[in-house]
């Protein structure tokens, strides 16, 4: 079975034909979340949250440079990415930090 990261990479590549695509897994930085989420679960409020099975792949940072973002607002760009990763967001991803740039913007950054 492909990992979440592999799935993200494939879907983002298909959807945006990116000039560059960077996917970083930050899950280890958020290990402390597990305790809080477990506490919420004890209160019967943990539903709908990303799993805390220790498998990681819950917090990602993604940077995409693509022509597809040309003429789109920040909100539109992020929605495009969210739509592409809809399943992964529902299944597993708890936090997704996004940087979305056109090649032109990436050059002048």
């Amino acid at each position: 079975m492909p990992t979440i990261r592999e799935r993200m990479e494939r879907k983002l590549t298909d959807a945006f034909a990116p000039v560059t695509l960077e996917i970083k897994d930050d899950s280890h930085k958020h290990a402390g979340h597990a305790d809080r989420i477990a506490a919420l679960k004890d209160q019967g409020r943990g539903e709908g949250h990303a799993p805390i099975d220790g498998g990681g792949e819950t917090h990602f940072r993604v940077a995409i440079v693509s022509d597809a973002f040309e003429g789109k607002s920040r909100v539109q760009r992020q929605r495009m990415v969210f739509d592409t990763l809809k399943e992964e967001l529902q299944e597993r991803i708890h936090a997704l930090q996004l940087k979305t740039m056109t090649p032109e913007e990436a050059r002048t950054e």
């Binding site: 920040r74 909100v75 992020q78 929605r79 809809k86 967001l89 936090a95």
Partner: peptide
């Protein structure tokens, strides 16, 4: 129609999440 939190609204308009 935004899958993550936080979310900022100004004057009733959605501005974005943390990155934005």
């Amino acid at each position: 129609n935004w899958p993550t939190i936080p979310q900022l609204y100004v004057k009733g308009e959605f501005v974005g999440g943390c990155d934005i």
